[in-house]
């Protein structure tokens, strides 16, 4: 039987003091990044950015957030890689199959009416979403004359995404999500395998461009019939989410579509009035034409 260790309960004053100090450190670190590297993280949701910064403290083997600041200021290497390590890049093929299924049924038939199509995937991480979109378009015969513009702030993941190689192998869960997304073939048909790595077929990859773009500081990336931005805005605070949504809205052609993450919501956004709900559980919305606003 292990004897319970006594947990020191901090008195209220030292707790407030510790939390206050940590908050100052976070603000200073964020300011340093902004001034030195040019990325403004001040609009990121506090709880998750804090955790990422604390993880950086552990990985860098320093004792507090403040100690990251000199590294950031004086090391070129740290400048390049801190920003990459502060973003969360987890993705997977056909994530939220319900959205893909609904896109297939409700949105793609509309895209068909355009002679050429542009799709913007903002916050593409390692590319799985863009790959899934290319597969979906191929299956409904719309891949020709479609360009998928996939963008992210993280230069490392973009490098990976461009190769077309999956970071993880293909597994049963991927296949199940593909089926649930309405897939009509076999997922492995779209990948070539060598040395245990799966690479998206070149003719699909040719329709995707991967570029660096910062949703919070850069302009509209392109004019698009469909904008997809999922599980990116969860990392922003409410105001910042609203600026991001305004950017996506501006990018959309009239009657163009917006897809957001499964657990994201437009309820607190003024944009809700400028968009029509196509499928709420699938999080698909349509830009109203100006006549209807």
């Amino acid at each position: 039987m292990v004897i319970a260790t006594e947990i020191p309960i901090l008195d209220e004053q030292s707790i407030t003091e510790t939390l206050r100090t940590k908050n100052i450190e976070i603000d200073l670190f964020i300011t340093a990044i902004k001034e030195k590297v040019g990325y403004d993280l001040s609009g990121y949701a506090r709880a998750s950015i804090k955790r990422r910064i604390e993880q950086l403290v552990i990985d860098e083997n320093v004792t507090c957030i403040a100690e990251l600041i000199p590294k950031l200021l004086y090391s070129k290497e740290c400048q390049a890689n801190y920003i990459n390590r502060l973003t969360v890049n987890v993705s997977e093929l056909f994530r939220h199959p319900n959205s893909f299924l609904s896109l297939r049924k409700s949105v793609l038939p509309y895209l068909e009416s355009f002679p050429r199509r542009d799709i913007w995937i903002a916050g593409c991480a390692t590319g799985e979403e863009a790959y899934s979109m290319a597969i979906l378009l191929e299956e409904v015969g719309l891949l020709n004359n479609t360009q998928i513009h996939a963008t992210d702030i993280n230069t490392e993941v973009l490098k990976q995404a461009k190769t077309g190689i999956l970071t993880k192998g293909l597994n049963k869960d991927d296949a199940a999500r593909y089926q649930a997304s309405g897939g009509t073939s076999s997922l492995s048909n779209y990948f070539s395998t060598a040395y245990n790595k799966h690479k998206l077929s070149q003719h699909l990859l040719d329709h995707i461009s991967f570029s660096h773009h910062n949703i919070l500081q850069d302009k509209v990336f392109c004019s698009a019939q469909l904008v997809m931005c999922r599980n990116v805005m969860i990392y922003f605070d409410l105001n910042t989410q609203n600026s991001a949504l305004a950017l996506f809205h501006n990018s959309l052609v009239q009657n163009g579509y917006l897809v957001i993450g499964e657990k994201e919501s437009l309820i607190n956004s003024p944009l809700i009035n400028l968009l029509k709900t196509i499928d709420e559980p699938a999080k698909i919305y349509q830009r109203k034409s100006s006549a209807n606003v």
Partner: peptide, 18 residues
Amino acid sequence: GYHLYVENINSYSLSVDK
């Protein structure tokens, strides 16, 4: 499928961190 945090006294935020 998401991590959940308390964002501030009246709201939450989500993350797909590992």
